[in-house]
Design a protein around this nucleic acid. Structure first.
Lengths: 142, 142
DNA sequence: CTGTATCCACTGCGATACTG
DNA sequence: CAGTATCGCAGTGGATACAG
């Protein structure tokens, strides 16, 4: 694809406010807790004390399964397939016995993590404030 | 609440990777396309040509309903209630006839929009690349 | 105008069992 | 180890009707 095609594309007006726009579906796809957590995991963005992300970290299926506490096989596989399909992660099969499969962020995946990283951080940083708001909302008069 | 309490709280270690951590639920809550779009709407962040968000813009229920194409009454109301409960938006009822209800971002809501704004932008900016990746994935050999 | 209430179809998602 | 296949339920979410 030629340079000018990409430039023209970048100028195309996708608008997620429109129900029929494909970016609406993409937004729905990336607005997902498992997507956010997988992206964080593959970026080595594990806790608040490491604000600056390191280079993408290849991880095996079982490692992801362990790190993302509570995720079902189905959701993990399903989400990884989706991310692979969209070019956000690569899936590499090493023919050992038993087989070894590693997942790694692509550049595109990293660019998304730059955004979604803030989601997890925000949730953790403002959890207390949100909990307090909920309590006040339950009992406004005291 | 005293300053040191908030400071201590900020140091508390919420970790969304843990299934039992409340921040996991909060992450799931804010990882939602309607949340993202409502936050964008109330921030006046309507299209790509306005990268810098203006001040929060109060909007009426019907305005939101119109702007968020395809959203059902149920989901819009449900999402707004949730955002209100968590202290991200305020709901103001003006006793006109018929009644007027306006929603407006709080400071906390604005801080979340600073994060989620990137989600919608990313979806729109990288839509073409993702579509291309999907095509290649469907037909890897040509 | 701004909701709430109800019904219903769909499917997201977990649990379980099975395979290369 | 890294999945696929199947079942089943509970919740999502739309459509419709009704109300303050």
């Amino acid at each position: 694809m030629a340079r000018q095609d990409r430039t023209a594309e970048a100028r195309m007006e996708f608008n997620a406010f429109l129900a029929v726009c494909p970016s609406r579906q993409l937004l729905a796809r990336i607005s997902d807790k498992w997507v956010v957590l997988i992206l964080c995991a593959l970026s080595g963005d594990r806790d608040a004390s490491s604000p600056e992300p390191t280079a993408p970290i290849p991880m095996r299926y079982s490692e992801l399964s362990r790190l993302l506490a509570g995720v079902s096989q189905k959701m993990l596989t399903q989400t990884l397939r989706s991310l692979e399909r969209d070019g956000l992660v690569t899936r590499t099969v090493t023919p050992t016995v038993p087989v070894t499969v590693t997942y790694e962020l692509t550049d595109l995946g990293s660019s998304l993590h730059d955004v979604t990283r803030g989601l997890r951080t925000w949730a953790q940083d403002h959890m207390g404030e949100v909990l307090r708001n909920r309590e006040e909302h339950e009992a406004p008069a005291g």
